[in-house]
Amino acid sequence: MADQAEIYTADHVLEYPYLRSVGPVVGAFLTGLRDGKVLGTKGTGGRVIVPPTEYDPETGEETAGMVEVGPEGTVTTWTWVARPRPKHPLPEPFAWVLVRFDGADTSFLHVLKASGPEAVASGMRVRPEFRTEGERVGHVKDISHFVAAGGAP
């Protein structure tokens, strides 16, 4: 039903710059990242949830206490992005990975630097590369990216 006539357009940019309190659990996790540590919380049956939430994502029960996990972990699934989008965390081709940190029972989404898709597989061992202490602010991007465990930083 589109007309053939020229269509006039104008840029319209929206943003929502809120400042929100992250609360005791997300806050503890982000503070942990700032300190170069990965923290999880204990959910139903003692399973360790990373990234942590105030409730068990499966049962809805309240979670309790923070425990340190990792820093190494195992890739549970992945995808290779040959052409990153402008807002993706890395400008060069990379892999999205879900990482189950050692000691955790759920997985954490982040990016993995690798030479190519042939260097990535489910089950591979990885570790986070933190930004330098001065750069860390308590944000999920305090982890710059993951690399293969034992691989070059």
Binding site: V22, V26, L30, W78, H88, P89, W96, H139, V140
Partner: peptide, 20 residues
């Protein structure tokens, strides 16, 4: 806090599911 700041697009997330 955990996902949006990384800007994972829906196709990438679907691809994680497909690989699994």
């Amino acid at each position: 806090y955990y996902l949006a700041p990384l800007w994972p697009d829906p196709t990438s997330l679907a691809a994680l599911q497909a690989q699994a």
